[in-house]
């Protein structure tokens, strides 16, 4: 994980180079962003929660001038307005933030009702050497954490504490997965916010609106949230 580090004197600007701080690597990303690289997805979730307060809008705990805090698989991207905050202040915030390992009390919990029995439930159960009921039980009894968004507004990659539901993507992606489809792929579970092509194994559907552009808060699930699935 080590990269070439410049001398500390030149670290004032984000263009200056990478830097190791508390197991994090701060990578330069132009004149108004840092990319923080972390060892794994668990570290990303903990660090993101530490920066933002779990599930809360980034602006609640970020210094003013921070624009976006974007978690991904191994990184957190932080963009800022260089007219409103100095790069060194952003760097200090990123270096001194404590990861929040456990869900903090301000974290949001989202309950999603699912009608199980999706087109890939039988195949998923077979792959995992379980009954369909066991797949459903495991999916509903696991606590899922929203790790990061992507793919479409409102789509969130959910992870849990075990890998017993880990399944490969479908060999041939579907050309149209309906909105509300609940799926599994790799270590992730997720809900399609809109109809789109997709290769996830579909185990159920929900009527919950994952993305509602008419609302002031259009995303049902935000990174950092805890998600529980219940049978409809």
């Amino acid at each position: 994980m080590w990269r070439l580090n410049p001398s500390p004197e030149v670290l004032g600007s984000p263009g200056a180079g990478s830097h190791v701080a508390g197991g994090r690597i701060l990578l330069p990303c132009g004149d108004s962003a840092f990319l923080v690289e972390l060892p794994d997805l668990n570290a990303v979730v903990a660090y993101y929660r530490g920066l933002t307060g779990a599930g809360a809008a980034a602006s609640l705990s970020a210094p003013s001038g921070i624009i976006d805090v974007v978690p991904a698989a191994r990184t957190v991207l932080v963009t800022f307005d260089p007219g409103a905050i100095r790069p060194a202040e952003v760097r200090y915030w990123l270096e001194s933030a404590e990861p929040a390992r456990a869900r903090v009390s301000s974290g949001r919990e989202v309950i999603i009702e699912v009608s199980y029995g999706g087109p890939d439930l039988a195949e998923t159960a077979q792959f995992l050497s379980m009954s369909e009921a066991e797949v459903v039980n495991l999916h509903t009894n696991s606590e899922w954490t929203a790790a990061f968004s992507g793919f479409a507004p409102g789509f969130v990659y959910l992870v849990t504490t075990h890998e017993r539901l880990r399944v490969p993507r479908r060999n041939t992606p579907r050309t149209a997965v309906p909105a509300g489809a609940v799926g599994l792929a790799g270590e992730f579970s997720g809900v399609y916010p809109r109809s789109s092509p997709g290769g996830w194994q579909l185990i159920g559907t929900t009527t919950a609106a994952l993305w509602d552009a008419s609302k002031a808060d259009p995303a049902l699930i935000r990174p950092g949230d805890v998600v529980r699935f219940v049978e409809a």
């Binding site: 976006d68 991207l77 995303a219």
Partner: peptide, 9 residues
Amino acid sequence: RQGWASLGL
């Protein structure tokens, strides 16, 4: 609409 990248926008 800046500031919503974490939601995928």
